[in-house]
Design a protein around this nucleic acid. Structure first.
Lengths: 334, 334
DNA sequence: AACAAAAATACAATCGTTTGTATTATAAAC
DNA sequence: GTTTATAATACAAACGATTGTATTTTTGTT
């Protein structure tokens, strides 16, 4: 019941293992006749290549590692799906690691993947990660790296990101067009590029409409349903705002919770726009205006980039994916 | 810049590679003194084990494969999360494969994982899968198998499933208690155990309340938002029902879409209960009564089972996880 | 001090591929 | 028909860890 190996095939056909290996790989150094003979025999004998042996000898495998903060987040699971869409037909496998936003776990994940001799590494950093010190091993070893969504700009690699600035800009502009003037900003971790850029886009739109930027209504770490709700209650009480652009849908949802609780509503009393197009944003009532990010596409691009990097050596460029504004009830006054 | 190997350490310390290997593995055959010496030197030299070499020699790896229909589905991504929660601290890695509900892809995934000499296999079958023929290779090779959520009962393995019957039973009973009498059933693929059991639970509750079972209001393959809406429109027009128990939240959402469109509402005119506790079910309006499945817990249990199977050899039992009914606006008449 | 028993380490084969180099077989050239 | 070029295959050494067996060293006993 032992597995059939290349050597077994070689013995049966009275050739050497090297010939079998080359034949199976389609190497032109072995004649067409033998190539076909070997392939047929391999199939007949039920040969299954041992990826471990191959990886050991070659020093690299057909497995690609991906590291993300959380797999059970709509955005990231869609990215994975997009990655596999490309990797699968190309013959690569995917090993998934989660950091749970912890730098320590991120380091461990990188180490594990390196020990497994992955052919390439896809990474979206944890919110704790401040620099690329822990990536030096990856860079030095020559294993190609592709960063996506949350990237460290200091680290040399392909970077695939959303145009967060543009998305936030359009969303904020939309609110301005609808006549809202005092628009709050709810952001996340202010150290992440993602949120830095969303804030930039927000400010840019305000400036364009000559609306003064008021730092007292620009909030950070206000990205969950709970914190969004609390912030909204407070801002409404202070009568400081007439709308919110939230850098996440959850905090936008929280804002709407707050309005409902206070007997107010969107878009009549306050305009609300989120970011991410979470599945619930369309379903909730009022439905939530938001910015759609193309996660699947991001996954596709990251996968294409890693395959290219594997074949042609590490590269270094940034690719930006446009976002799309989706206007819904929460911000469209009739 | 070459990687440090066990042999390098051996040379430096003037011992043999076997001693180093055993020392690093904590084997008592090597003296405490050498063990500590080796470990220290390994650390000093920046030794990183080569998982491939180890896997080749041992014939198995510390990687566990998981096969699911779709990763970007809330339920499954939460299972993965739960699996990793257990696997991670135990030193196992996870390789994730998606079938997209295709049997052909499922076969390929199994082959790939077997070629990668995974230590164990976690599987939730595709909706196309009818039998376990393609699993014979796994069973024969002795690689432990754990099925979860969607399982083939004919195949010998650990099986971790939700108590779908119980969940459906409680949900239907709840509708009956609320005074609804003519309750439709919206199901999925009627060949999957999952839906067979939900239908069973539904019927059981009806029988208990002496409500006759009417096959004209028992619908299969009605599990998406669209099909749920269409079915609801049709049933309401025919005045056949006063409530729906849907085996999925999406079709329940569709049913509510239908009601809204016809100027009707839940729970006043029709009661609606879903299944799955999708994130949107709490957020939508009216909020949706549903049955919560503990995906994370299922993942935990599957992971524990696979580790146990790896250590103690393949096992064969079924573990059932209770579901929990969550009553919300869509079915609670005041 | 001699010997047995136990502990520690060394030796060597092995896992299944891959790949550079050497060798043999075939074809082409004169 | 010999020489040269080319195609096809064989040989053999890796890749890095693991593990059964053999050997050496240490410890204990009398």
């Amino acid at each position: 019941m032992r597995k059939v190996t290349i050597n077994d095939i070689a013995k049966v056909l009275n050739v050497t293992p090297s010939t079998v290996s080359r034949a199976l790989a389609g190497n032109l150094r072995v004649s067409l006749k033998t190539r076909e003979l070997v392939k047929a025999k391999a199939k007949e004998m039920g040969y299954k290549p041992n990826s471990m042996a191959s990886a050991l000898r070659k020093g690299t495998s057909d497995t690609i590692g991906i590291i993300i903060p959380r797999i059970n987040r709509h955005f990231f699971s869609n990215i994975i799906s997009g990655v596999q869409e490309v990797l699968d037909p190309a013959g690569y496998n995917l090993m998934v690691m989660q950091t749970g936003e912890s730098l320590a776990k991120e380091k461990k994940a990188i180490e594990t993947l390196m020990n497994n001799r992955v052919g390439g590494l896809l990474l979206s950093i944890s919110s704790e990660t401040q620099n690329g010190d822990h990536l030096s091993e990856v860079i030095q070893s020559g294993v190609p790296l592709v960063q996506f969504d949350r990237v460290l700009s200091e680290v040399q690699s392909v970077k695939i990101v959303n145009d967060n600035r543009q998305g936030a800009y359009i969303a904020t502009k939309h609110l301005l067009k609808m006549g809202y003037k005092r628009i709050a900003y709810f952001g996340g971790n202010p150290k992440l590029d993602t949120y830095i850029n969303r804030e930039k886009g927000y400010k840019e739109a305000l400036s364009e409409y000559d609306v003064p930027i008021d730092s007292s209504i620009i909030l950070h770490d206000t990205i969950t349903r709970i914190t969004g709700k609390e912030a909204m209650v407070s801002l409404v009480k202070k009568k400081k705002i007439d709308a919110v652009f939230s850098a996440g849908d959850y905090s936008a949802l929280g804002a709407i919770d707050a309005l409902k609780q206070m007997g107010l509503s969107a878009p009549e009393d306050y305009g609300v726009v989120g970011f991410a197009n979470e599945p619930f944003s369309e379903i909730m009532s009022p439905s939530l205006s938001t910015v759609e990010q193309f996660a699947q596409e991001m996954g596709n691009k990251a996968a294409v980039a890693i395959i290219k990097s594997i074949k042609e050596g590490p590269m270094n460029y940034i690719e930006t994916i446009d976002t799309r504004f989706i206007g819904r009830e929460s911000s469209i006054k009739s």
